[in-house]
Amino acid sequence: MRVEMFVFVVSGAICVAGALGVVLFRNPVHNALSLVATLFGVAVLFVAQGAYFLAAIQVIVYAGAIVVLFLFVIMLLGVDQDDDVRFEPIPGIRIAAVIVGISLLGMSLIALLSSPDVVTGAPSALAPLDPATPDVNRIGAALFTDYIYAFEITAVLLTIAVVGAVMLSRQSPEVPLDTEEFPDGTMASELAIRREETSVADSVDTDGPEPADAEIAADAAGSE
């Protein structure tokens, strides 16, 4: 039990720290790397729950493919500079977001902890998690019997993704037709101007790293 507890605490901490990193780091590259941490932590938790196959594809598909895709796009677009987090165009949205986020957490926890057994459903409705058979077999059997239809139509989903990705990234940056309709459509919008004004105002009293920034860095370092 001690070992399981230890595994849970450590990987749980990595998950949370990674999640916070995604939200709080200013540089998209750091965000992506934090996401890897969370994904990895979740994979460990999958292992801890006996879902070995899922843990494997979690690492391969998520960390290996999806995050790499993120990084690739970040580099392609050259947006690996820090986001300007000092300026907030929508006043109060951060506080509101945190309040809503905490209430969301609270509500979910009430729902999850409302009954001592947590789950109220019928056990083993699909097939029991028989430890004798490898979980690849179990998932495979379910996929090709009960979920055969869902499995087959994911092909359509992937086709759409391919067609869409090709179509969208092929779009040529011609002169848009709706510039008249939205005169600020192609150039910096009102918000961008406001942002510059704020940056000028702020740059007077900013020397060295932001205190909040340092805190986050320390936080992240501490938890890993």
Binding site: Y62, F70, L126, A127, L129, T154, L157, I160, A161
Partner: peptide
């Protein structure tokens, strides 16, 4: 795991696929 049911794991499989497609687009 709590329900001793394989269904939960199957679902994760599909969520992964959907997530991949979503990210690509």
């Amino acid at each position: 795991n709590m329900l001793d049911d394989v269904g939960g794991q199957v679902f994760v499989f599909f969520v992964l696929v959907v997530a991949a497609a979503e990210v690509a687009v």
